[in-house]
Nucleic acid binder design. Structure first.
Lengths: 154, 154
DNA sequence: TTTTTTGCAAAGTCTTTGCATGTCA
DNA sequence: TGACATGCAAAGACTTTGCAAAAAA
């Protein structure tokens, strides 16, 4: 008995269809790139996609990332002054610690913030997106340097 | 007995002098504007300063804000994709809660984060700047809307 | 008088948009 | 077919930089 070959639609396809939107190769490739890269700026996503499909334009990447974010399959974080980085929405297992002095990015376990996010929600009704939590300050190295130079000034 | 009129140098003046830098009217005005405005983008600071000194240019504002930040008298936060906002460095009494859906900005008491920031420092040696802590998620209103629309989809 | 700072304008990033063409359903 | 999506190029927002003129010390 011969079964027709019906490819299982991906989660992305389903999300698009349910909105009456189209599943295009570009959208699939851009989503794949975000998954593979883990974190990436729009530019990096574009370069990755262009390895396979060289004509995909940066503006399509921007439009698609915005769309994917609306669909809830990716999210973005501003790690610094530069371009934001995009990551899969379920890639929510760590917090970014951005050093404002040297630019180094540490990662912390998202569970550290669980209690904190609950308090915020309790007090303000604000539902924090932990994957979007980027914290700024001084990394261990730079905090040490500042400490040392403060000491030498005494 | 006649005393010579020696204006007391401001904290800003002292900070500048200690670095061999010059105290110019522009720098004082820009610092004042940040203090008065509380939060402001470079553009807003510039407009405020221009009410008093119309020739001050935006590039001077950018250069000065960067300088003031180095001196530790102001800091900045990225509240969204747009321009960063600057505030006095000692204005560290609240956390920004940025709604990623509607852009609304709530404020929460910085003490809510005290325990959290201590844990981060304990685990990673990372010294968090609470004034620079901006949290992204859904405000009470938008979280409610999403909840409601999720319910209607069932 | 010397060095720093400013204002202007031009250039640089990063992002969005208009529109003709192309494509999915 | 008809609505939606893409690619391109141009425009936009935000920021930085080079340089001659102006100002602080």
């Amino acid at each position: 008995m011969e079964r027709p070959r019906v490819p299982t639609p991906s989660a992305l396809d389903l999300a698009l269809r349910s909105r009456g939107l189209r599943a295009t190769p570009q959208r699939r490739l851009i989503n794949d790139a975000v998954v593979v890269l883990g974190h990436a700026t729009p530019e990096q996503v574009c370069l990755r996609v262009q390895e396979v499909a060289p004509t995909v334009s940066l503006s399509t990447v921007y439009r698609t990332l915005e769309l994917l974010e609306e669909l809830g399959v990716v999210s973005h974080t501003h790690l610094g002054h530069g371009a934001p980085t995009y990551h899969p929405a379920d890639h929510a297992d760590h917090i970014h610690l951005v050093c404002t002095r040297c630019g180094h990015i540490d990662e912390a376990d998202v569970r550290l913030a669980a209690e904190f996010t609950e308090r915020i929600t309790g007090d303000n009704g604000f539902v924090l997106d932990p994957a979007h939590l980027s914290l700024h300050g001084l990394c261990a190295g730079c905090a040490g340097v500042r400490e040392a130079s403060a000491a030498s000034r005494r």
